[in-house]
Simulated assay, not measured.
Amino acid sequence: MTTVQIDWKNLGFSYVKTDLRYVSRWKDGAWDDGTLTEDNLVHISEGSTALHYGQQCFEGMKAYRCADGSINLFRPDQNAARMHRSCDRLLMPRVPTEKFIDAVRQVVLANEHFIPPYGSGGSLYLRPYVIGVGDNLGVRSAPEFLFSVFCVPVGAYFKGGLAPSNFTTSSFDRAAPHGTGAAKVGGNYAASLLPGHEAKERGFADCIYLDPLTHTKIEEVGAANFFAITRDGRFVTPRSPSILESITKYSLLDIARDRLGMQVEEGDVYIDRLDDYVEAGACGTAAVITPIGGIEHEGRFHVFHSETEVGPITRRLYDELVGIQTGDREAPAGWIVKVR
Rank of each mutant, 00 (worst) to 15 (best):
I6F: 00
I6P: 03
W8A: 02
G12S: 11
S14T: 14
Y15P: 02
V16K: 10
K17A: 11
K17G: 02
D19W: 01
Y22S: 07
D28Y: 04
T37A: 02
D39F: 00
N40Q: 11
S45Y: 04
H52E: 12
C57Q: 07
C57I: 14
M61L: 15
C66S: 03
A67Q: 14
G69R: 08
L73P: 09
Q78K: 13
M83R: 04
M83Y: 08
M83F: 04
M92C: 05
I101G: 05
V108K: 01
P116A: 04
G119H: 13
G122P: 05
L124G: 10
L126T: 12
V133W: 06
L137H: 02
G138T: 12
R140H: 08
R140F: 03
P143W: 00
C151T: 15
V154E: 05
A156W: 06
F158W: 11
G160W: 01
L162E: 07
A163S: 14
N166L: 14
G181R: 12
V185D: 10
G186W: 05
A191C: 13
K200L: 07
E201H: 08
D206K: 00
C207L: 11
V221Y: 11
A228H: 01
I229L: 10
F235H: 06
P238C: 02
P241I: 13
L252I: 07
R257K: 15
E266S: 03
Y270D: 10
D272S: 13
E279Q: 05
A286Q: 09
V288F: 04
E296R: 15
R300S: 10
R300C: 07
F301L: 09
F304C: 07
H305N: 11
S306N: 07
E309D: 14
T314A: 02
D319W: 09
I324N: 09
G327N: 06
D328L: 15
E330V: 13
A331K: 00
A333R: 14
V337Y: 09
